[in-house]
Nucleic acid binder design. Structure first.
Lengths: 343, 343
DNA sequence: TCTTAGCACTCGAACCATTAGAGTGCTAAC
DNA sequence: GTTAGCACTCTAATGGTTCGAGTGCTAAGA
């Protein structure tokens, strides 16, 4: 077990390193008012902490830096959350200032604000479009041979896709079709749309519409909602601000990984409640072994719908980021719930 | 004037430097079969070229690199376009392979393909949404107090915005309103929409709709088409691949500039016909003084509607990029014209 | 007159030695 | 148990040396 003093020294060391990005030495620490010990005493304690694996040296005669285990301990036991400075609270609130009514807008602005306040990279996962339900379907012909299919969801999201109309089709058939579709498919989850389309409407089309088969199959292609996740980034370039990242190859592979949306589930695994901190190699992706990622979910109504992640160096200002994320996830949940409920 | 030999040496020097990214020395050049001269002769010629400002040295006893003037001359007089390798042509064609019907999709894919084929950054400017005309307006209520306004353009583009409905409004009024709007505003340029809205519809609303003022003003806010340009990037990270960019601060300011859409008009000035090459400080933005930008416009029908830019180091493979852009701008114009004409 | 061989010269990159300084671990005194 | 003192270690910075690639100039050769 760690003694009181060791705890204190570990904490101050981590704090100092987070702030300065420089290995921390015993002399330096002994000058701090929280540590009224001589450098020698601190040295002893630091040597112990190193033996136990909480601290590391970059070379024989260097100061100490926290090890992964050290960060872990710090994060698990030493994060005494301080209230957010007023300044920050005001800024966070300003996201919701002008009465924007769109979920997407709110999420985008949140991402930007977070990256600005932290100087790290923010990744926000929006609500999964496929869990929304159909509010209205419409088809707008653009000319003789193409048309736009438009799906409006209950959340106000609009999906649209241009598709080719089979040549020589009666325009009135399209109108009939849209009516049938709306009658039968309103309220259906976007995710189930392609299945329900077949189940609910194919047989009716057969009865009412000439050459239903062609029209049906083109239209079906048009309404397949893309599987793509709803990802918003902000502050991708903040990585370049961190002194921890000097190696251009590491930066590249890190940025590469973050751009690729297929890696998103690895960066911010779904389904976990509350706030999660993953430090260094605790991340699944090897490109992120020098990073820490803090994730938190937010909800609309009772259902957990999206998550927020902050990606920064292991030497991240955990305290600040945790408080920011805690606050924002709450505010965001409240605001988005309000938005949706209104409808 | 430049002698035959000086011309040849300038060309080979530039070519070599473009390929190797290393200062070019006289010994190296004399080994090439195109240059059957002794190193000393080449040295003399290079010294002349340096005096005339076409070449530079990085230090007293280094090889030469092309100066900005050198690149300019190379680009103006020495770009003998070779036909594109089959491989590349096939790849370019593949953009149009599956019959996508959407302009945006085609442009996005073009950007990706270009960045992949060149290893530089591609920026594509899509057709200006505000020059499209209204095909159909509709309003889909989401609940008691909000609705989505949807504008479909003749090109198949869909703009949508959620807005708040003034409380206690009669739903039938909305329907009336949509009818009036469609009757009066179909065919209007998106750019003129907010003016025409007032001119054409306000007085009619007054006659037919209760509490028209409130409804009108909220709706007007919803249809203001955002001024935002239609920009697609691809291969932003390719900058990190170039050995020319090692300074992390330069990279940062360059990427910063490219992200900011307000800088786009500076990067790719509008209105110029044909292919344009801007080298180093010929670019307006100081962050791009180490870059070259090649721009070309493409057209839909007769009207020039968008442009393509490739951003890379001054030591760019001009020959290849020029040929690629030439080909693509042609293909893109043809394909997009076909798409639009169909409608 | 143009070309080229020869040579002295310059400069950067790499290597080494030296030094200063910051930090350590250990021992012994308080 | 704490701390002063000291020998020790390692990095970073400095300066000198060497090597090699490249140059410019001169003079000889075609």
């Amino acid at each position: 077990m760690l003694t009181e003093r060791q705890l204190l020294i570990l904490k101050v060391t981590v704090d100092d390193y987070i702030e300065s990005a420089q290995p921390v030495g015993s002399n330096q620490l002994s000058k701090k008012s929280e540590l009224p010990f001589s450098p020698a005493t601190i040295r002893n304690a630091m040597a112990d902490l190193e033996k136990m694996g909480f601290l590391e040296k970059t070379h024989t005669s260097s100061g100490r830096i926290p090890s992964q285990k050290g960060y872990r301990y710090y994060v698990d036991h030493m994060l005494t959350p301080r209230p957010l400075p007023k300044q920050d609270i005001l800024q966070l609130q300003s996201i919701f200032d002008d009465k924007i009514a769109e979920t997407e807008q709110v999420i985008k602005r949140s991402a930007m604000m977070l990256s600005e306040l932290t100087n790290y990279t923010a990744i926000l996962l929006g609500p999964d479009v496929r869990k929304h339900t159909v509010k209205k379907l419409s088809i707008v012909p653009l000319g003789s041979d193409s048309a736009v299919a438009i799906i409006v969801t209950d959340s106000g999201h609009v999906e649209n896709r241009v598709f080719a109309i089979p040549p020589g089709l009666d325009p009135s058939d399209i109108e009939k079709m849209v009516n049938i579709l709306n009658e039968r498919l309103t309220g259906v989850l976007l995710n189930d749309l392609h299945i329900r389309l077949e189940q609910e409407t194919l047989s009716i089309f057969r009865q009412h519409i000439n050459r239903y088969a062609e029209l049906f199959s083109t239209f079906r292609q048009a309404v397949v909602v893309p599987h793509e996740e709803n990802v918003y980034y902000a502050g991708k370039l903040n990585i370049l601000k961190q002194p921890d990242f000097h190696d251009i190859h590491k930066i590249r592979s890190l940025m590469d990984v973050m751009e690729e949306s297929k890696h998103i589930p690895m960066i911010m695994p779904h389904g976990s409640l509350g706030l999660q901190i993953r430090i260094g190699s605790e991340n699944t992706l090897s490109a992120m072994e020098d990073c820490s990622v803090i994730t938190v979910a937010y909800a609309i109504g009772e259902e957990q719908t999206g998550s927020i992640a902050i990606v920064g160096p292991k030497r991240m200002d955990y305290k600040r980021v945790v408080t920011l994320l805690d606050t924002l996830s709450g505010d965001l949940s409240k605001e988005l719930t309000r938005l949706i409920r209104g409808k």
